[in-house]
Design a protein around this nucleic acid. Structure first.
Lengths: 166, 166
DNA sequence: TATTGTTATACTCTATAACTATA
DNA sequence: TATAGTTATAGAGTATAACAATA
């Protein structure tokens, strides 16, 4: 009558629990470091990092929102906050008057630079410290496979179908 | 003069990015499923799951807070919310009048049961679907190693030293 | 009409500090 | 005094819906 309950093997269960624990501890550590050193939330750091990586240090609001998976109003909120701190500027696009272009400032790059060493340190400590080179390679391969798979098929289970309808 | 900047190898960088992406997508999917099917936040699910696992389905507030790494006021807030929904009860401990014992109700177990299949489904879809049995074993081993290492040494970098002073 | 972005608003979550009561 | 828990409060973050401006 009903579908059989889905199951996880003991190994899968162990992998899931350990994975969850590690990612949670890593995330907490990274968030604390960003807050303490740069007064940045994780989302704000992601936004700055994206802008820092962009060729001219700027992006449209919509493209930023898509990258971070975020509601547009949520992005407006964060962009305002970053602008008030002088870490980004916002201005209209020359090409499309509807668009707002967000650009990282020198101050923004300074904060990014200030935060970076500790960020890497936290990742080393909470993820790589106890792993061999082979382990790291393995991890890169397996995680790369999963993320590639997830990108390939927007998982249709557990919810709706669209990627980010907003 | 200054310490050299810490670095990540290309492989480490790849592993870190992929790991972060997977854990973020998995977390989002799980949270959405819990919300849609059981109207539970992730923290609430963790609390219920812990109570469900406890021998007599109950725990002291403090022990619960320790397990989930949470401020006590935050736990009070969530426990009240769960109590209002009839998923847990709260009462004084017979042994220590200061303590509050939280116990899962039959309704709480029902919600847990209702939410569980989809939870497992989400984990399968977002983590294991594209992995071989060997990959899963590898992942379990490596993640187990990292989490074991993190438990062994409360990482002293990037912050204070106490585990959870509250 | 469709798209870009902002605003108004409401809600959830979290933490800090002050407080009560037991030990 | 120290511990367990609650309350008051304040702040960050998020989302939805309504809106204005431009394409």
């Amino acid at each position: 009558m009903s579908t059989p309950p889905p199951r996880l093997s003991p190994t899968e269960l162990a992998a899931y629990f350990a994975f969850t624990e590690v990612s949670s501890l890593l995330r907490h550590a990274v968030e604390k470091q960003l807050r303490d050193v740069g007064k940045l939330s994780y989302v704000q750091f992601q936004l700055l990092a994206r802008l820092g990586d962009a060729p001219d240090g700027s992006q449209r609001m919509t493209d930023l929102a898509d990258g971070v998976v975020y509601s547009r109003s949520g992005l407006t909120y964060q962009a305002q906050s970053l602008e008030e701190r002088g870490l980004v500027t916002r201005g209209p696009s020359p090409e499309d008057e509807r668009s707002t272009i967000v650009a990282i400032t020198d101050e923004g790059r300074d904060v990014l630079a200030k935060v970076f060493p500790g960020h890497i340190e936290a990742v080393k400590t909470h993820l790589f410290e106890s792993l061999s080179a082979g382990d790291v390679e393995m991890l890169a391969r397996v995680m790369g496979q999963v993320s590639g798979h997830l990108r390939a098929e927007p998982p249709r289970s557990a919810g709706g179908r669209r990627r980010k309808s907003n």
